[in-house]
Design a protein around this nucleic acid. Structure first.
Lengths: 342, 342
DNA sequence: TATGTTTGCACAAACGTTTGCGCAAGGCTC
DNA sequence: GAGCCTTGCGCAAACGTTTGTGCAAACATA
């Protein structure tokens, strides 16, 4: 295996000093009055020998890495892959590289991943937290710019950008109500998660505004297909089964559909469903699924914007932003066959 | 923003030298005969002030980063997200961190991403190449361990691990033939891509073995939903439309299904379909889709294993491995209504 | 008490950069 | 030809580590 070129090796072979070469390659030739001729020679030589600076040395010296960290709970989840994609592209536009760490929805991994990022002297970090407390993150925020995305801590001053899950959920529930549904089951994700709990809140509020507080039924434990399956299975087996199911994530939706199919129920004829999250494949299910659509791209752009601003200004920012979701209407909602007893 | 602890700051406050502290924290106390007492004091202090080593300095000195790069064409594609997931987890098991770069299926981005990784002194890199030539990668291989995954260059000696796309495709086509289909359309991805061309080869070979060389019809241009839609639309409008469609990716499949639906064809009654790639949601389409299942997990594990071995032994490896795919049978294949003219 | 051995740690160089400062050579002014 | 300014570049310190070597003190031996 051959060696890589360094400023030193170039200096030896061109006869110029290390500093001169460094300045030329960093575009500071003018500032330091390096002659045209020298600049040309050095640039040519560097080009020819395919020199690339050693980033570790560079950042050791400058304290900057032009790198931001991105810590997500599971890159395997298309929602987070989507976020990662946007953030990687957006960072790239601003000449930043992204280091992606997967915390596997595990507090310990999250903590270690964060430390690993900090050790690398990243300039800032974007986090979808999976722990329940903001403590470590707040400590990090003392010395490193940090922005939360998707999940956040309402009681903390950490900056975040997320979807207005409450509003999205409220609107979706409202839509079902407007179609005439009165027995609407809500299947939630982990109740500790702010995204899930806000969605539940929206669901309850919509029922409340219809004077149906007592009809609110929420169950479920996590964002898994299995959870959706089990909860839907139970709900549909009840004496007075729901006429509509509101699945608080697309995975929960998949489980719900399976349960509906097994119960011999056709969607939307026998059962209406509405989901969260917007994936292409939701259009290819039968029927295509009406869902609450999070503005992922805008979230990613905003998060990067906030982060880079904090990096540039070297001071904290406490913006806490919720973006409005929209509803993508497809074919999974219809008026119930017959109004329930109520 | 507060300062981070360094060996120097700890040295000043504990009275021990930098080297002693370094050795203690690296578990080399024994080797350098640091007393029990000193070890304890230093460890306690480091713990208390939450010291984490500066990785850039560390790797500048040691030339190792315990980091591997992963360069994929698009993290937004669940297939690559899945690969990334496996590799991240597997690397983690061996105490390696992964830096993920997205080349956006763009040669220039790939090249720059690779340089960015190299600048970081990563210990090795796993690549799903998107360029058509192995030149740059072969040059990198001169000084940095590299393993290709999924896509590879048959004429190059670069090590790779991939699926036996030929075999998977052969078997799938064979299955359709065994069901009695004689008019099978194949919708491919980019013809320059080895994965797509191998799949096409498998398709042709299977037809050949049935003495149906002249019935081979391949069309398509990329792994997009739109491509699948357009090609299927065209195929189904022909005077003698296919009784089965082999979609060479799951995205092509989605387009195909949409076209079939618009043509009023029911799957599998009026049209059989079979796909590549194995995603959960394929089970939730109507009907669930029979598909060729790539052993992604094994591929990831093998790639990491090969890479770490190269890193450890500090020498090249030229293993070129194809893992056998399997077929996941669901409900999208059935015997054709009536045998075609042939 | 003199000598050798062990114990326990510190010194300093090196990794590849960046950057403030300095210095030599040449040109200009008078 | 003396003094000053400009041009063009090099010196060396610093970033936070790791690690080969060195050295003083303590201890053991004779």
């Amino acid at each position: 295996m051959t060696q890589k070129e360094t400023l030193i090796s170039i200096a030896e072979r061109t006869g110029f000093s290390i500093s001169t070469i460094s300045r030329v390659l960093n575009g500071k030739a003018q500032k330091y009055r390096i002659s045209e001729q020298t600049v040309r020679k050095i640039k040519e030589f560097a080009q020819k020998c395919n020199y690339t600076p050693n980033l570790t040395a560079q950042s050791l010296r400058t304290k900057r890495t032009n790198t931001v960290g991105l810590l997500v709970p599971s890159i395997d989840n298309p929602f987070f892959a989507n976020i990662a994609n946007v953030i990687i592209h957006e960072a790239r536009l601003h000449d930043y590289t992204v280091i992606l760490i997967d915390s596997m929805e595990n507090e310990k991994e999250e903590s270690e991943g964060l430390n690993s990022l900090l050790s690398r002297n990243i300039d800032g970090v974007i986090v979808v937290p999976c722990s329940n407390t903001p403590e470590q993150l707040e400590e990090v925020a003392q010395h490193t710019p940090i922005v939360l995305i998707d999940r956040y801590f309402p009681e903390s001053s950490l900056p975040y950008v997320s979807t207005d899950n409450f509003q999205g959920s409220y609107n979706a529930t409202r839509m079902l109500l407007d179609y005439g549904h009165r027995n609407i089951r809500c299947i939630q994700g982990p109740s500790a998660s702010i995204t899930s709990s806000e969605r539940v809140r929206g669901y309850r509020e919509a029922l409340h505004d219809f004077g149906l507080d007592d009809r609110a039924v929420v169950s479920g434990s996590d964002f898994s297909i299995q959870n959706g399956y089990i909860e839907a299975k139970l709900a549909l087996a009840e004496p007075e089964p729901p006429t509509a199911i509101f699945a608080l994530s697309n995975t929960i939706l998949l489980g719900t559909m399976k349960a509906a199919e097994e119960a011999g129920l056709r969607i939307p004829d026998d059962l209406s469903v509405i989901s969260f999250d917007n994936y292409t494949y939701l259009d290819f299910l039968s029927p295509a699924i009406t869902r609450v659509n999070q503005p992922i791209e805008e979230m990613g752009i905003l998060a990067i914007k906030m982060l880079l601003q904090m990096i540039r200004d070297n001071r904290a920012n406490h913006s806490q932003i919720l973006l409005p979701p929209t509803i993508t209407v497809r074919d999974s909602v219809r008026a119930p066959r017959k109004t329930t007893a109520e």
